[in-house]
């Protein structure tokens, strides 16, 4: 099996793992926030007050998802540039 085929099979599994919960738990909130842990904390020690607040918070959900998208895009941009560069380099070496 070539690298491409192997990776396609693996990517398929990753997608299944990500999509299956959306189908089987259709009614769930899928809150990304770390709110549940926060709830457990207030349950255990009701008097706890966070003593420090974020210096800056994204003003809206849209801005936050923009910044997350930028993070992912910058990272995958580099990953793909590198892999493509190495593939081209290898091809050239084999050509010589």
């Amino acid at each position: 099996m070539s690298t491409l085929h192997k990776n396609l099979v693996l990517i398929f599994f990753v997608l299944v793992l990500a999509i299956a919960p959306l189908i089987t738990r259709g009614g769930a909130e899928f809150g990304g926030a770390d709110g549940q842990a926060e709830k457990v904390i207030t349950e255990i020690s009701p008097n706890y007050e966070p003593w420090f607040n974020s210096l800056w918070e994204p003003p809206s959900g849209e801005i936050e998802s923009l910044l997350f998208a930028v993070q992912a895009a910058a990272g995958s941009g580099f990953v793909c540039y590198y892999l493509g560069y190495m593939k081209g380099k290898k091809k050239r070496q084999e050509g010589n």
Partner: peptide, 25 residues
């Protein structure tokens, strides 16, 4: 460059909030 790849990979993956079977991300 490979070291950069290792950092970039962590950068991408920690930006991806993925739904899980517990009904949260």
């Amino acid at each position: 460059m490979l070291l950069g790849l290792a950092g970039a990979f962590a950068f991408v993956l920690s930006a991806l909030k993925i739904p899980s079977v517990t009904g949260s991300c």
